[in-house]
């Protein structure tokens, strides 16, 4: 069912993209061992994500969406199936991940955190400095470049995390509920900031969240996942023009309809999961 909406590349009037997809996942399985029993986290997940798409994985907690993201990041190996990421620039890193709030390294300053990925790739010092500064500017953290994370608010830490991922200019960006620990207003601001930075280059994004509102605001296309074992049960395009703003989205009747449609799906999964006693 994901195959049907494969070519869909955003609601901004661009024509469907005939190029081969950026990410292709085929028949992916992930089985964990918990003592003497086995837990199937992902079951036969197949999907294709076109270049430049902001793709949101949406599902009840524990549905394996983070596991899928970790497999895409190469942090975990699949039990079966394949993942292909099409390279465009051979020297670019394959992916960069925006972690949850604790992902900022506490013993590095803001600047060192942002430069970390570039340093790991052994780029020349001047280039690291120049790119780091550019992205510190973009996330408005230039005045805090020498501060340590303990001195930052949660929102500022996540801006560090965003800058650290974007500055490496990876083939794909992976985000694992980056704003879930923040308060609502801070989340709004960071979502807008994320969209602003992303819209400059429109790199392919896979974004994991459990928030329907967030998914609609950010995504070109939403992949709904079932409760464990995680499967992709529905792909929903978001036919909203960019740039998007929270204010206009809130008053758009299509958003309400989308919300209800998604909720009907998820509700079945959440309730069904509970009744199955898991």
């Amino acid at each position: 069912m994901t195959q049907g909406s494969l070519g869909w590349a955003g609601g901004d009037g661009r024509s469907p993209d005939p190029a081969p997809p950026k990410i292709v996942v085929r028949h992916l399985y992930k089985v964990f061992r918990r003592g003497d029993r086995q837990v199937t986290a992902l079951e036969d997940v197949s999907l294709a994500i076109p270049e430049g798409e902001f793709c949101v994985l949406l599902g009840p907690s524990g549905c394996g969406k983070s596991t899928l993201l970790r497999i895409l990041a190469g942090l975990e190996a699949p039990s079966a199936g394949t993942v292909e990421i099409r390279r465009r620039a051979p020297q670019a890193p394959l992916n960069a991940m925006v972690f949850q709030e604790q992902g900022v390294l506490p013993w590095m300053t803001v600047e060192e955190n942002v430069a970390f990925g570039l340093q790991m790739r052994g780029l020349p010092r001047r280039e690291i400095r120049e790119r780091t500064e550019r992205f510190l500017e973009k996330v408005q953290l230039l005045p805090f470049r020498h501060a340590y994370p303990k001195e930052l608010s949660g929102g500022m830490k996540q801006r560090v995390s965003l800058a650290r991922a974007f500055v490496t200019e990876p083939e794909i960006l992976l985000m694992d509920e980056p704003f879930s620990a923040l308060d609502e207003q801070t989340t709004f601001l960071l979502q807008e900031e994320l969209l602003r930075i992303w819209s400059e280059h429109r790199r392919t994004v896979v974004y994991v969240t459990h928030s329907i509102d967030e998914a609609i605001l950010l995504g070109d296309r939403l992949l709904l996942m079932s409760a464990r074992p995680g499967r992709i049960v529905e792909a929903i395009p978001v036919p909203l023009a960019r740039p998007r703003q929270i204010e206009t989205l809130r008053s758009d009747p299509r958003v309400g309809e989308l919300f209800v449609r998604i909720w009907h799906h998820l509700r079945r999964e959440v309730v069904g999961h509970r009744e199955s006693g898991a």
Partner: peptide
């Protein structure tokens, strides 16, 4: 998570 960050950024 710090180990993940290190691995993810190579």
């Amino acid at each position: 998570i710090y180990i993940d960050v290190a691995r993810n950024y190579g």
